[in-house]
Amino acid sequence: MIRHIAARELRTLFLSPLAWSILGVVQFILAYLFLTQVQEYARLQPQLAMMHNAPGMTEVIVAPLLGTAAIILLLIVPLVTMRLISEERRNRTLPLLLSAPASMTEIIMGKYLGVVAFLAIQLVLVALMPLSLLAGGSLDMGQFAAGLLGLLLMLAAFAAAGLYMSTLTAQPTVAAVSTFGLLLLLWLINWAGNTVSDNGSSGLFAYLSLQQHFQSLLSGVFDTGDVIYYLLFIVLFLVFSVRRLDADRLQH
């Protein structure tokens, strides 16, 4: 059941120009950044060659690329998730799902996995660019994999928050704006965290920040604590979404 709902969600995304334009635009911007980063590396190479224990291509090119990809997708994901529930509400197509033999959890999971599948496609496209470097050099596959995992978890977290915002309203644009606001706040919240407690990442605000956990994964540090943070984040918003959709049935 989850599979069918997810498949339809993905299909609908690709039936509208939205998915294609998002894939195209994001790929274009990241390709540009990737190329400037490659150029930068080529410029620095003579100096790097002299250094002992010099940073490799993964650190100079891949980590910044994935870091920027996260920021760009922070702007993009709300546009993908905004219509998940709110558009069904608006078009009054929700009864189709509600009167079908599917639980609220299945409906939410189906919608969620549909979007995550789309974001995974985006991720694969992004990952292709660093992989092209293999033609002329070598990558630190461990760090690259940690970075990709971090980006995947980050996108999955964005999608969960976006889905929840979409269950709150019948207006897709309202869902998009509030998702964007929420994500940006959670992205920036560690700025306050750093000033409150001088010892950097130990503050509560710093812990809440999406960015903080991403940074360590980008630098190749795989800490289960970071992965658990993202998983908790995702589960929390999915549970909220299920409960919110269920509340529709209970009152008006």
Binding site: M1, H4, I5, R8, R11, T12, L15, S16, N91, R92, T93, L94, P95, L96, L97, A100, P101, A102
Partner: peptide
């Protein structure tokens, strides 16, 4: 329902197949 719940971007065949899957 009063307003038929239809996904306008799907074809009739696709939509009905989806409904059949939803109906397990």
């Amino acid at each position: 329902p009063e307003q038929p719940p239809l996904y306008r971007e799907l074809t009739v065949d696709e939509f009905l197949a989806y409904c059949a899957r939803l109906g397990r």
